[in-house]
Every structure is written in C-alpha cells, then in structure tokens.
C-alpha cells in the first residue's frame, strides 16, 4: 500500500516537473526541473528494487551530465531576451512530430501487460551482486563491446576538441 502511494507521488512529481522543463522560459529553470525529474525517476527504480540503477542514475544524470548542462548554460549566459525564436512553420512541424511520437509510444504500450511490474516478484533482482554476475557472465561480450564503444567516443571527443595537432 505504501509503495502504491509512493508510486503515485513520484509519478506526479516526474510528470509535473517534466512539463515545467518544457514550459519554463528560463533555460536554467528548465535544467533544474529536469534534475528533479531525474530524482523522481530514480525513486521509481528504487520501488522496482533496482537500487544500483537508481544510485547510478543519480550519480551520472543528476550529478554529472546536468552539472555539465548547467555549466554550458551559464557559460553561454542564455536568458529570455537573447533566446532565438524559431519561425512558426518549424514550431508547427515540431508539434506534429511530437504528437506522432506520442502516438507511437501509446500504441506500443497499449498492449503491454502491466501486472508483471507491480508484483515485485524477486526482491533481490536489482542488487549489485546479481547485476555484476549477469553483466560479467551471460552478457560479457556485449558489455565489453559497449565499453570499447565508449572509449572510442571519448577519444573522438578529445580529438575533435583539439584545434591543431602538431
């Protein structure tokens, strides 16, 4: 029962703040509401017994990526007056695209069975020990390949940011 109330509370916070991200005029406010949304999502992970995922979600998204976002917004010093406005045609196109994406998501989720999520059948499913065994056991090769992908992305970013190479 308790987790039911928590679920509704977190869902409300997540959706409300996600809307504020879009509707805030000031980019700093948008970024801050996005952080609150990330925290609410992390709470959902906790409810699903995925503790590791929740902690890493906070560390990586709320702690690292959003700090860099806000850093860039502060550097560029964006505010209401200088924010460039797109033309009306682009705004209409964006709205139509968003609605179509929403339609696809609703169509995909309409047939899913929701009962599997609410049962919390295995309390140990998200523990780090189990996750580590799965990642370094059954999914060893995909995991290692994705790490190599990250490494190459990092090297690429460093290479691109270098202005001149002697």
């Amino acid at each position: 029962m308790m987790s039911q109330y928590l679920f509704y509370f977190l869902t409300f916070v997540a959706i409300f703040c996600a809307l504020l991200v879009v509707f805030s005029k000031n980019p700093i406010y948008s970024a801050l509401f996005l952080i609150v949304t990330f925290f609410a999502t992390a709470g959902h992970y906790f409810l699903l017994n995925a503790q590791f995922l929740a902690a890493v979600h906070v560390i990586v998204y709320a702690g690292a990526i959003m700090v860099l976002f806000i850093y860039v917004i502060m550097m560029l010093n964006l505010n209401r007056e200088v924010e460039p406005h797109k033309s009306t045609a682009i705004k209409i196109a964006a709205t139509v695209c968003g609605c179509i994406l929403g339609l696809v998501l609703v169509a995909a989720l309409r047939e899913t069975e929701m009962s599997a999520i609410s049962e919390y059948s295995n309390p140990g499913i998200g523990l780090i020990e189990r996750l580590g065994n799965v990642l370094f056991g059954a999914y060893m090769v995909p995991f290692e390949i994705s790490t190599v992908l990250f490494l190459s992305a990092m090297v690429g970013a460093v290479f691109l940011s270098k202005k001149s190479i002697h």
Binding site: I35, Q51, F52, A55, V56, V58, I59, A62, G63, A64, V67, L127, I128
Partner: peptide
C-alpha cells in the same frame, strides 16, 4: 544501506 558508497558518491555529485 547496501549501496552506501554509491550513496556517498551520489550526494557528493549533487
């Protein structure tokens, strides 16, 4: 909590 160290890193990062 059994993710104490991760909790620490999370709080430090925010």
């Amino acid at each position: 909590i059994n993710i104490g160290i991760l909790y620490l890193l999370g709080v430090v990062s925010v």
